[in-house]
């Protein structure tokens, strides 16, 4: 029974990683950059939802919508101001800028909300689900997280495979110049990608803060790094890869913590990553990079 609980918790944590990893991987696929400020957008989502409920006294639904709206706009603005001027710049310059944006967001949060952790009351407070004569109890946050994960992944898969916008995103990710010849606006497509990724980060922020009910300005760093790992694990640039990588990472982390060592759980996660990359350098579902002829 314990194992099942750990598995469920692992899938729940993994769903959060997957939601964050989707943002990393989509931005990488389309803008060919690693947006290391992505984790800090999660933090902003956490704080916005906190302010709306705790300070303004509005219901959780409003808080979630506000967090998504603010983060979506934030993602688009970050891209316009920080990354767009560097489209033609070497990738190292873009990487350093992304780290700069990350510090900027963390410090802005420090300035506004101070470094004191704030206790966050879960946005989802219905009764836990009890199964097998109370031997298995699944918390409301876990249920919401897993369901949200499923909905997000299904919706995104559908958008990318079936809609005109999703197809345009794939076209841009494969060949920018050819996409432009088709009439697809690359700038617009990149903006949309940042918007989607950052909106998802806000959702991840709310889920994360509800599950581990404390928020602080650095709260996005570790999940950001883990989700980045998940994206690489699954194959950076691959949407199903980010989902698979995220879930697996969450499960490995929780199972490792429960049965091997709670101190070493992160080490286990990264060891698995290294092994996978040694065996398959493009990640689990990563595509072979097409060489230009």
């Amino acid at each position: 029974m314990d194992f099942i609980l750990h598995l469920i918790n692992g899938i729940s944590l993994g769903s959060i990683y997957a939601i964050i990893a989707l943002g990393y991987t989509m931005v990488y696929g389309i803008a060919k950059m690693l947006n290391f400020a992505h984790g800090d957008v999660i933090m902003v989502g956490g704080y916005i939802s906190f302010v709306v409920t705790a300070n303004l006294g509005l219901p959780p639904a409003v808080a979630i919508v506000a967090a998504v709206a603010v983060c979506t706009a934030l993602g688009v603005i970050i891209e316009k101001l920080a990354y767009k001027p560097l489209r033609a710049a070497p990738s190292l310059a873009v990487l350093i800028t992304a780290i700069g944006v990350s510090y900027f967001l963390q410090n802005a949060a420090l300035l506004i909300w101070s470094s004191n952790p704030k206790s966050y009351s879960s946005m989802f407070s219905f009764e836990p689900l009890r199964l097998f004569n109370n031997r298995l109890s699944i918390t409301s946050v876990t249920i919401v997280t897993v369901v949200t994960g499923i909905v997000v992944m299904a919706a995104l898969t559908l958008i990318i495979s079936k809609t005109k916008m999703g197809k345009a995103m794939r076209a841009v990710s494969e060949d920018k110049d050819a996409a432009q010849l088709m009439g697809i606006g690359v700038n617009k497509t990149i903006s949309i990608t940042f918007a989607i990724g950052s909106g998802l980060a806000a959702i991840a922020g709310v889920l994360l803060a509800s599950a581990y009910p404390i928020i602080m300005p650095t709260m996005g760093s570790m999940p950001g790094i883990k989700a980045f790992t998940a994206a690489v694990f699954g194959g950076i640039g691959s949407v199903p890869g980010a989902m698979l990588g995220g879930i697996l990472l969450g499960v490995i982390e929780i199972i490792g913590r429960a049965y091997i060592s709670s101190e070493l759980s992160d080490a286990i996660v990264f060891s698995v990553l290294i092994i996978v990359l040694l065996v398959k350098p493009t990640g689990l579902l990563g595509k072979k990079i097409n060489e230009k002829v």
Binding site: K164, A168, R170, A171, E174, D175, M182, G183, N290
Partner: peptide, 26 residues
Amino acid sequence: LAMCPEGRRIFLQMTVEENLEMGGYT
């Protein structure tokens, strides 16, 4: 004004029909 670029530059990971849909994007 349309261009069919050197080396074809079709979207290799998309289906034939999706490639054509992209051609009619506008």
